[in-house]
Amino acid sequence: MDLTLKIWRQKNSSSKGKFETYKVNDVSPDSSFFEMLDTLNQQIIEKGNDPVAFDHDCREGICGTCSLYINGRPHGPKRGITTCQLHMRSFKNGDTIVVEPWRAKPFPLVKDLIVDRSALDLIIQAGGYVSVNTGGIPDANAIPIPKMNADLAMDAASCIGCGACVASCANASAMLFVGAKVSQLALLPQGKIEAANRVQKMVAEMDRLGFGNCSNTYACEAECPKEIKVTNIARMNRQFMKAKVCAEKHEAASFGG
């Protein structure tokens, strides 16, 4: 396959970026998208230039490190996969592929295609955990959990925090991410105890960081590599409103011990 690539190049966060056009020839349809980018980088390095910087780690769709907005879709044209699981057979010989970084105010650009997604970590730090005291391990059967809740919590927990939901959303909203992180705990008995406090803190942090608001276009669900459902957003909204109306006021409500 012979391809033309239009890639966003930007030296650092303060410099001005622009699209550069590259040609890559003899690409195997069975190679992965990243192998194709590795080939391109090899060509660039051999010419003595700076290779294209992009995020990647596990290259098997489990770590959530890779990103890339490819031809108008986060993680490329296939449903339910990350960029590292994308293969060149998804494109045609002679195609022009436009590769852009995730674009959102809370994701400042670091270099080329790499953005800083630590805003998502800050939301987790605001309350996306369960305060567990140390002690003896309780019997597994001592806390009955309905199978459906266990399954829904597991589905929500499959979020790898890649940020594709933010990248695809017309409003750069992180509500699918936060909805999943709220749901994975709120659906289980251990997480219910701090549920009201958690949802308020995580939503407040999301707003503070400058993410947009959900207008229910559901692009996030369409692009999530783990196919997380927008019902998690509805659950978060429900819990948030319930917490705002019913939860008692805490003096310096805090987690942990």
């Binding site: 108008g72 695809s168 409003n171 947009g212 608001n213 276009t217």
Partner: peptide
Amino acid sequence: IITLKNWASRPVGYLVANKSHTSFFSK
């Protein structure tokens, strides 16, 4: 207010407009 805030959440836009499968009227 929400629309203005949403627009401000993406100060630099994409070159290729989003092609995600969404409901038409919602956009």
